[in-house]
């Protein structure tokens, strides 16, 4: 079971080479196959995720949640997806049409690109990049532009306000986001995510880097625009922020991309802080799924527990608390590493 997917990839690669393809083209075809699999998993997974979030939120608010379609309302999301697919596609006449139409596509492409480097098991990743962690952070920073495009292209005050908020928030929270991961990089001595997983063989980094874990979690919540930091959407005051003018399939793409980002960030947290795919008994690809879902449930828990934060509090919290704390963590980690070497423990 452990090497199931790795063996499948090897079989496919061998078959392609036997067809007369040169190794480069076989690799390229294999890359496309991996991408198609990743995209399929993402789209199918979101059906479960939306149902799960609605059930979790219902549990927190002492409601039942979706309960009509199928057992425990599990088919509700499928019905919703069909509804969204068949809805009329409205483009506002005053909108900047090109930007309005490109924004959701750009957002989803950027979100899917995050999965390039995530190790989904032993030897299972789309590309084993030696700067994987940095790649993840930098691609994540691009989603800001998509929200800005959506907000601007809609030509609507609510949308623009939402976009302005999200950009201010995401640019500020990117700094603690990157800094909090630096502590892990310093200990493992590598930016390669597989190396980081291997470095956690004995001890998970959540124990060595608890401050980094907490700052990363908070910064990631803000970066994902999730509650309690969902100021850019803020249904009650901005009627949906940057997504206000979007309908049907285009809106669904934004929704899909948001959940795609959520899963990617959760998988990264599981990889960097929770030992990645390592674990006893079960195969590695099952462990990463279990850990990722654990982190996602914590994200749900936080969202449905805390009320929304005010915008100025949000900004000052990033610059006055998170940035100094994450910088201090880097200093502490560096001192710790030297102390450890001096004592001869490592």
């Amino acid at each position: 079971m452990e090497a199931l997917f790795v063996n499948l990839a090897a079989v496919l690669s061998g078959w392609l080479t036997s067809l007369g393809l040169s190794p480069i083209w076989a690799d390229t075809v294999l890359l496309f196959v991996k991408w198609i699999i990743v995209i399929t998993i993402i789209t199918l997974n979101i059906i479960i995720l939306i149902w799960l979030e609605r059930k979790v939120s219902a549990f927190f608010q002492e409601r039942l949640g979706p309960n009509r379609l199928g057992p425990f309302g599990i088919f509700q999301t499928i019905a919703d997806a069909i509804k969204l697919l068949t809805k009329e596609d409205i483009v506002p006449s005053a909108a900047d049409k090109l930007i309005f139409k490109t924004a959701p596509m750009f957002f989803i492409v950027v979100a899917v690109m995050l999965y390039t480097v995530i190790p989904m098991g032993q030897g299972m990743e789309v590309i084993n990049l030696n700067i994987g962690l940095l790649f993840f952070i930098s691609i994540g920073s691009l989603s800001t532009i998509a929200l800005l495009m959506a907000g601007w292209g809609s030509n609507n005050k609510w949308s623009l306000m939402g976009a302005v908020r999200s950009v201010a928030q995401m640019v500020s929270y990117e700094i603690p986001l990157a800094f909090s991961l630096l502590g892990v990089v310093m200990i493992s001595g590598s930016l390669n995510l597989q190396d980081i997983v291997a470095a956690q063989g004995k001890l998970w980094f959540i124990i060595l880097q608890p401050i980094a874990f907490i700052t990363y979690f908070i910064a990631a919540t803000a970066e994902l625009n999730r509650g309690p930091f969902d100021m850019p959407e803020a249904e009650q005051e901005l009627t949906g922020g940057a997504y206000t003018e979007y309908t049907g399939m285009r809106w669904a793409l934004f929704f899909l991309a948001e959940y795609t980002n959520l899963v990617a960030v959760s998988a990264l947290m599981a990889t960097v802080f929770l030992g990645g795919w390592q674990g006893p008994w079960l195969p590695s690809w099952l462990w990463i799924i279990i850990k990722t879902y654990g982190v996602i449930l914590v994200f749900f828990w936080v969202k449905w527990t805390f009320p929304r934060i005010r915008m100025d509090h949000l900004m000052s919290f990033s610059w006055k608390v998170l940035v100094p704390v994450s910088l201090g963590n880097i200093l502490l980690t560096g001192a710790g590493i030297y102390f450890c070497r001096w004592m001869g423990w490592c």
Binding site: L134, S141, L148, W152, V164
Partner: peptide, 25 residues
Amino acid sequence: AGFLGVIQILVYAGAISVLIIFAIM
């Protein structure tokens, strides 16, 4: 030069251009 490429995306495409668009708006 993967590191340079990633920094190019992070700093220029992700941050500086966003600030430019922000300033324009």
